[in-house]
Simulated scan of single mutants.
Amino acid sequence: MPTPLNLEALRSAPKVLLHDHLDGGLRPQTVIELADACGHQGLPTTDPVALGEWFRDNANSGSLVRYLEGFAHTCGVMQDEEALVRVAAEAVEDLAADGVVYAEIRYAPELFTDKGLSLEQAVEAVQEGFRKGEEAAGRTIRVGTLLCAMRQNDGWQRIADLVVRYREAGVVGFDIAGPEAGFPASRELSAFEYLRQQSAHFTIHAAEAAGVESAWEAVQLAGAERLGHGVRLAEDVRGDELGPLAAYVRDRRIALEMCPTSNVHTGAVASLAEHPIKRMHELGFRVTVNTDNRLMSQVSLSGELATAVEHFGFGWEDVRAFTTNAAKAAFITHEERGALIRNVINPAFDELGG
């Protein structure tokens, strides 16, 4: 008999997370304590419960621009090495406690240099924190790092260089993040060309705040291996008929890093009822389920999966498919992906699904 598919059971299931922002996943109490330690001003409250609610309410505005405003506080308290180590370690501990066995956590190093840290110091501090978090988690979890360039800023090449330089330290890929509309992936195609020449992986935020043209640039001009969100790729689908880009993305197995709650909060979709995750899954896209920003949207990966189960009627086989899709799209070696699926995911879901 299958295990009842509820939040408790989902927490016990092994999970793979591909799209999670370090600066969007702090504990509210940590924000308060770090703000006090570094003199950061302007927190709306110093009550951790109320602060978590403030971040959620600010994020749930239907506007990506307003959604991003909360990061002024999280990034504001992440400007020294001690803070970065703590935030990174706590992120790993929180994910492990939620049953995540492999996660790729992303951040933009340039956002942590306002008080004098170099890009290299920021990367090294976060990597130290991730390793400490893995050791302290109390259960097996592995974390890979994605370094983001801010798409509204110049200098994507600097971040691409860091991805290659810190590959042996656990940096597994590159991304561009920030406001999507008006800042296309084609702004600095040379950075993606460099990454391909160096055999480095990259994903691109696309088709979230902009439409199909954003996904086309990410895939066809830049050569993205995955699409961050990719929710508006559904605009290239009419019933059972896929447009040329949608068919290309599906058939090339380019993963969609979907984040249902965040997609509603940023206005990428009007409501969960209108989210295309079920349709894209049924049509054979490599759909994955992710958190995006755990603090901002007040979510966990288990909670996101439970929301998807509740709203779209998914069963254990669907949850297993999302997990396997994520493992197959992870920026680790073929052997590591296979071992994760064979030795961790399959045995657990064989038992959970009966």
Results as ranks from 00 to 15, higher is better:
Gly39Cys: 00
Pro184Thr: 01
Ser300Met: 11
Val85Asn: 03
Gly155Met: 03
Ile159Asp: 00
Lys15His: 07
Ala255Ser: 13
Leu295Cys: 08
Glu8Asp: 08
Glu120Asp: 15
Glu235Asp: 15
Leu195Gly: 04
Gly24Phe: 06
Phe314Met: 08
Arg196Lys: 15
Asn325Gln: 12
Leu26Pro: 00
Arg232Ala: 10
Arg226Val: 01
Asn153Arg: 14
Ala348Gly: 07
Ala306Asp: 14
Val77Trp: 01
Arg66Pro: 00
Gly230Cys: 11
Lys15Glu: 02
Glu188Ala: 08
Asn343Val: 09
Gln157Gly: 09
Gly303Tyr: 11
Glu317Trp: 11
His311Met: 13
Asp80Pro: 02
Asp23His: 08
Ala268Glu: 11
His205Arg: 06
Arg106Ala: 13
Leu95Val: 10
Lys115Cys: 05
Gly138Thr: 12
Met1Glu: 03
Phe202Met: 05
Ile345Asn: 11
Leu256Gln: 06
Glu304Gln: 12
Ala89Glu: 15
Asn60Phe: 12
Pro4Thr: 09
Leu51Thr: 02
Ile159Tyr: 02
Cys148Glu: 05
Ala83Cys: 09
Pro347Arg: 12
Tyr194Arg: 12
Tyr194Ala: 06
Ala97Pro: 06
Cys259Trp: 05
Asp98Met: 11
Ser262Tyr: 07
Ile204Phe: 05
Cys38Leu: 01
Phe183Arg: 08
Trp156Arg: 02
Leu111Trp: 04
Gly24Ser: 13
Gln220Val: 12
Ala136Asp: 09
Ala59Gly: 15
Glu135Ile: 05
Gln157Asn: 14
Arg56Ser: 11
Lys328Gly: 01
Val231Asp: 04
Glu124Tyr: 04
Ala35Cys: 06
Pro109Ser: 07
Leu17Asn: 11
Phe112Leu: 08
Leu68Val: 11
Ala122Lys: 07
Gly170Pro: 03
Arg142Asp: 04
Val344Met: 14
Val269Cys: 07
Val126Gln: 00
Ala185Ser: 15
Val249Pro: 09
Gln220Gly: 10
Pro244Ser: 14
Glu124Gly: 01
Arg139Asp: 13
Leu18Asn: 05
Glu317His: 13
Thr30Lys: 00
Gly338Ala: 09
Asn58Ala: 12
